[in-house]
């Protein structure tokens, strides 16, 4: 565990707490893509169910339980408790365009051709693009509440911090994980446009608005 990874994980944790806070205090899930949240449940279940057969540390297991639990809870909030505030008509990204290529890629690129490893690869590939329905929705509406942008920023910073973590691990442990690194770079890249608007507008106190 190095500082980049710890801060990355804490940023991931913070992003979910920010999202829960936004939903609970505004009693609304307006502006949040149900499809992206559903994809995260798929990502976490596919990757973290290994907590039943792979023990790494208490920290690792506790985080896995938290991510599976909180993502399912968010789906529940969106689907049931705050259902009237969820507008599927603007959440129109076709997720089969993500699921099918990720499934094919995971059959080709994995560390061992066995179900658990294929699921692991699938979750890595799917996580890298799971934010697309959310970004697509943002693009369509052209604006977002500040709190929603804080959620997205924390989520983007999480993966961005994993990159120096991998560089650090390469030099200190000699280990390199090509699947995670490639997908991680793609994932971070998807946030670049968002980061630009976030850092130049939202953090300067302006509203998050995309140019028409």
């Amino acid at each position: 565990m190095n500082l980049f990874r710890l801060l990355g994980d804490l940023s991931h944790l913070a992003s979910i707490l920010v999202l829960l806070h936004k939903i609970q205090t505004s009693r609304s899930c307006r502006g949040i893509s149900f499809k992206t949240q559903a994809l995260y449940v798929a990502v976490f279940v596919a990757r973290y169910l290994d907590l039943f057969w792979r023990y790494i540390s208490l920290y690792n297991s506790a985080m896995k339980v938290f991510f599976i639990g909180s993502s399912c809870y968010i789906l529940y909030l969106m689907k049931y408790r705050y259902r009237p505030t969820n507008d599927p008509s603007i959440d129109t990204f076709r997720i089969e365009y993500l699921l099918v290529p990720c499934a094919i890629l995971s059959l080709i690129f994995n560390y061992n051709f066995m179900p658990t490893e294929i699921l692991w690869s699938f979750s890595i590939f799917l996580e890298s693009v799971a934010i697309l329905p959310q970004l697509f929705m943002l693009q369509r509406t052209g604006e977002a509440e500040a709190i929603t942008t804080h959620y997205l920023a924390a989520l983007g910073i999480y993966r961005a911090l994993y990159i120096p973590n991998w560089i650090y691990r390469y030099f200190t442990e000699g280990v390199i994980d090509p699947i995670a690194v490639t997908a991680g770079i793609v994932q971070t890249g998807l946030y670049l446009d968002f980061f630009y608007v976030y850092f130049t507008k939202v953090l300067q106190g302006q509203k998050f608005e995309l140019p028409a």
Partner: peptide, 10 residues
Amino acid sequence: SATPEAHDEL
């Protein structure tokens, strides 16, 4: 262990 297959990252 520090191999990619160890999957020790979140």
